[in-house]
Amino acid sequence: MTLFKNKYCIESTRLSNRDYAANGLYFITICTGDRTCFFGDIVNTQIHLSAIGQIAEKFWVEIPQHFKHTYIDAYVVMPNHVHGIIIDKPYVVETHVETLHATSLQTYQTILMIAIFTTMSMISPKSGSLSAILRSYKSAVTQWCRKNGDDNFTWQPRFYDRIIRADGSLDKIREYIVNNPTKWKEDKNNPSSLWM
């Protein structure tokens, strides 16, 4: 852990040299706060979603409607976490460059504002990045809970991601996701299995 403003901060789990707005396939796991089973129960190896679980699933399926070039693959909403594969394709930002023949004060201010915007965008989460997508998803579910009287709902602050490489692991991850409800008793996210 490192210090930031005299407070300990947990180091990022993201790869420092990875552009999470670039194309790729990501295996995502998002857990609820304290692994509380807000999303439903597993009965006879089948997930029975609560109202919050149904919203979590609905909003997950709707991710591509809110983020261009983003698609979802296999997913499952479990009692206290969501597993899913997100496919993020690159997008191109068009820029227009004009040649300046004389620098006026207004042009100088424009150049300065562009420099400030560029610097801020380099240090901020990029629009359409994996972090931005998941922050928006988690926020939407939380807002729905607040509007519908469940002020106790929380997420864990972070998420787990694994970059899916072209090594045949995609099919194994899909199988893991689909079979997750059948293995709930042994799942590390199952609160009752933590004591085993």
Rank of each mutant, 00 (worst) to 15 (best):
G24A: 03
N23V: 00
N6F: 09
F27N: 10
R18L: 11
T36D: 03
F38Q: 00
S12W: 05
T32H: 07
I30H: 07
L25Q: 10
L25Y: 11
C37R: 06
I28C: 12
E11V: 12
I30G: 07
N17C: 08
T32Q: 06
R18Y: 15
G24F: 02
N17T: 11
T29Q: 08
D34I: 03
K5G: 03
I30E: 09
N23R: 12
M1Q: 04
A21H: 11
L3P: 00
R14W: 08
Y8R: 14
G40N: 05
R18I: 15
Y26F: 14
N17I: 08
G33N: 08
F38W: 06
N23H: 13
N17Y: 11
F39T: 02
D34W: 03
N23F: 05
M1L: 05
T36V: 14
E11F: 09
A21G: 10
K7R: 14
I30D: 04
T36Y: 14
I28F: 11
F4D: 07
T32V: 05
A22T: 00
N23M: 09
M1G: 12
S16C: 11
Y20C: 07
F4R: 13
Y20T: 03
I28K: 15
D34T: 06
I10K: 13
F27E: 06
N17R: 14
D41N: 13
I30V: 15
N17G: 07
Y20D: 03
T32L: 04
F27K: 12
T29E: 08
N17E: 08
D34P: 06
F4P: 00
S16A: 14
F27Y: 15
C37I: 03
F38Y: 15
T2C: 03
S12M: 04
M1N: 04
F4T: 05
T32P: 08
E11A: 15
D34M: 13
F4L: 12
R18D: 02
Y8S: 10
R35A: 09
S12E: 01
T29G: 07
C37N: 10
R35F: 11
I30N: 12
G24M: 01
E11K: 13
D19E: 01
F39A: 10
C31E: 01
N6P: 00
T32S: 14
Y8C: 05
G24L: 03
M1E: 03
G40F: 02
R18E: 10
I28T: 12
N17Q: 10
D41V: 14
L3R: 02
T13L: 15
L15K: 01
F39K: 05
M1A: 11
C9D: 02
I28Y: 12
L15E: 00
D41L: 08
C9A: 07
C31W: 04
L15P: 00
M1I: 01
T29H: 10
F38M: 02
D34R: 13
R14F: 11
T13W: 09
R35M: 15
T36L: 10
G40R: 04
A22S: 13
K7P: 02
L15C: 03
I10D: 07
T13M: 11
N17M: 04
G33S: 09
C31I: 02
K5M: 08
G24E: 00
N6Y: 07
G24H: 04
